[in-house]
Design a protein around this nucleic acid. Structure first.
Lengths: 341, 341
DNA sequence: ACTAAAATTTTACGCGCGCAAAGTTTAAGG
DNA sequence: CCTTAAACTTTGCGCGCGTAAAATTTTAGT
């Protein structure tokens, strides 16, 4: 029994019969103390369940064990899945990750970086908003805090970038679509939030031209992050107006494609590769829900696992060794053939 | 110019010509100091961009401005949307919310509560895992930290509960389905993670019996949080085996329904209410993607907005006034008629 | 201009722990 | 048993800020 409530490390050191600095050492690394000492501490730990005050720790340590994970829109399952993957790796490595989402708002992104700065994190994994980001703010942040960018590229900012090789997506899916049917038209938003969209458009155009087909890019209106709704309403308008020269539509991303599938349904346009279908639709990302659309969506899968693993590993290497060379790692997409195209 | 880097509040107080305690008072509430004083501080703030050390603040304050938001699975857009809504309200109220997800793992849920405890948060909004939660741990946590539960109910735990009145969902959708076609069968997982599933099953059975129809509950295998996949594979098996006595299937939740729609597609079973359709499918939740399934999913909409608003408001009231009466607030669902049923 | 109230300053202590330096004990090797 | 390095203890300072009490100034009010 003895004292019921341990108030601080001093009292805990007393009841465990060890000096406070040694106890402190134990909490920073249990391996760093003698085995017998460790045992005594852990025995006491079971009896009194004391835990060091995290604020006092972080105030005095030069570097905290905190990590920041920032994504542009957490309600998008693509980012949620990526964040989940990254978060779990950070926890496994003994860090304390915190999840932030800008929810499409640049001001909020700035606020997040601002408050993140005062958390003195050991590192940050940042997927910027993209076009609407305040690049000066991000750049300044990256100068103060070890940061790895992912998903959305910004040149020469941060310790490195990890993402997909979007320029490879075009050839891959265009080749497949051309081989199995008509060369595709391309559907995208007029002012895409994410810079990957531009790379994908260029990749599409290049791939079409290299295989001797004329590219057709259909750009629709729409702001914000409600891609499905934009794909449905604006993509639907384009479909109704007969704007697509091809019976095959390659969408800039899966969410747009998911909305476009809905538009096709609403207009009684049968989607798929069977003979009784009028249109083929493909996306890019392999969004978690693309497996479950009707018909299931043919797409290019981003390598969630490799991206998150590489991003985390690169950050850890940078934290430990303080490597300074800006490294860019791109992973290839994989063609996922389903029934929509 | 003067000193470039302000190291602490003492130095900042010096350059702004104010005493440190008054500066401290300003940062805790800018309104609490004289207008002229405030102006001088804010002038200095523009020149030196000093920010109080958050760890030192939280170490000394009895209560922090931190809030915890815990959900069972953040990669589920339903929870992501709820979390987004809640998070933004907390930020608007001047708090620092932090998002946590158990990702379906009870051990992780315990860890989250554990680390949340040491953050000394002003309050926590917790949506427990449900059946797999360690109730003793949650109950103990709620005794230490002001906590509002949401989505998943646990009797007599926390300061209150906010969620949907699941027992009202049954009558609502059963009445609609019966009025417009055959009385529905009910599709659910055998061992649902969430207690709401049980309430929904009972509500379905009651509603069926009260309107003079015989209920049929089809329970399928499947563990974890990949509901769509369970709906597709296991729901698909049930469909192929002809287990559903009715041509109308009410699913326990939208994600299950989304997967079941895929199964229907795979088996060439046409879904909808037109004469050429063989089956009607309905869900419950109004999942963000249900608008975009093919056909769009008829469902019961949970009132995301009201739930998140009420949860946050209840917590704030509890934090300020320290009300102790355990309050349960349930919001009604709304029938959303789309093409699937 | 005089008084009371409000705001501010001064002074001083405490929070809980990291960390460095110097002295002491422990464990391993010959 | 002696040597030595490693592990540990002791001592003491510092981090940056909250906060309380008392002294002082400012403001508002008749």
């Amino acid at each position: 029994m003895a004292k019921d409530t341990i108030r601080n490390m001093e009292e805990f050191a007393a009841v465990s019969g060890i000096s406070r600095p040694t106890v402190s050492k134990y909490f920073n690394d249990p391996e760093s103390v003698r085995q017998s000492t460790r045992q005594r501490i852990e025995d006491a730990l079971e009896k009194y369940d004391y835990r060091p005050n995290i604020y006092a720790i972080n105030q005095n340590r030069k570097l905290t064990k905190n990590l920041g994970i920032v994504v542009p829109y957490l309600a998008d399952p693509f980012f949620a899945e990526l964040a989940r993957n990254i978060e779990q790796r950070c926890v496994a490595a003994g860090f304390r990750p915190t999840l932030y989402s800008s929810y499409g708002d640049p001001d909020r992104e700035n606020d997040i970086l601002d408050s993140l700065r005062s958390l003195k994190p050991a590192g940050v994994l940042l997927a910027p908003l993209g076009r609407t980001s305040n690049q000066a703010v991000i750049e300044k942040f990256c100068n103060d805090v070890p940061t790895i960018l992912f998903d959305s590229f910004i040149p020469d900012v941060g310790l490195g970038f990890v993402g997909s090789d979007n320029s490879q997506f075009g050839p891959l899916i265009v080749e497949y679509l051309c081989r199995t049917g008509e060369p595709p038209s391309f559907l995208e938003m007029k002012t895409p939030a994410n810079p990957n969209a531009n790379k994908r458009r260029h990749a599409y155009i290049n791939a079409m031209e290299q295989s001797g087909h004329e590219p057709q890019v259909v750009q629709v209106d729409g702001e914000g992050w409600h891609f499905e709704e934009i794909g449905r309403s604006e993509g639907g308008k384009a479909l109704a107006a007969g704007l697509f020269k091809s019976n095959t539509v390659l969408c800039s991303n899966d969410r747009l494609a998911i909305g476009f599938l809905t538009a096709c349904y609403e207009q009684n346009v049968r989607v798929g590769r069977d003979s009784d279908c009028q249109i083929r639709v493909a996306g890019q990302d392999d969004h978690p829900f693309s497996r479950f659309t009707c018909p299931p969506l043919t797409t290019i899968a981003q390598d969630y696992d490799a991206i998150s693993r590489c991003a985390v590993e690169t950050l850890f290497k940078a934290i430990e060794g303080s490597e300074n060379k800006h490294e860019t790692r791109l992973f290839e997409g994989r063609l996922v053939m389903r029934d929509s195209a």
